[in-house]
């Protein structure tokens, strides 16, 4: 396991080895969620929040996932002010920023 730290303004996406993740902020909680939709592997990071703001809707098949369920698949994450810390498996790390529809 490795500790990855970055400024939340500078990064919305990360990859550890072949696995991609995206930053999801909801109801004051910050999560690092796998970017592949559990349904058919769609780009979940490009999903929109549902009207109730409690679900994320995958753009491929409109499958809505409760954020509480996504949190169970998320990496251990800690935000203190602007600093974001993610605990991830060992592997090469890539961080980058891209606009996400739900942020």
């Amino acid at each position: 396991m490795q500790v990855i730290q970055f400024d939340r303004d500078h990064c919305t996406r990360l990859a550890v080895g072949d696995a991609g993740y995206f930053v999801l902020e909801n109801q004051g909680k910050t999560l690092a969620v796998p970017d592949k939709c559990p349904h058919r592997g769609g780009p979940l990071h490009l999903g929109q929040l549902s009207d109730c703001s409690r679900k994320l809707v995958c753009p491929w098949h409109d499958t809505a996932f409760p954020i509480a369920s996504l949190a169970k698949r998320a990496l251990p994450t800690l935000r203190s002010g602007q600093r974001l810390t993610v605990l991830a498996p060992h592997g090469p790390v890539k961080l980058w920023r891209e606009p996400l529809p739900h942020l």
Partner: peptide, 18 residues
């Protein structure tokens, strides 16, 4: 509560590492 957010699935290994 606003400045500190804890998310994802924390394990003892993650706590030790952090």
């Amino acid at each position: 509560e606003r400045e500190v957010s804890i998310g994802g699935q924390w394990s003892l290994a993650a706590l030790r590492e952090y």
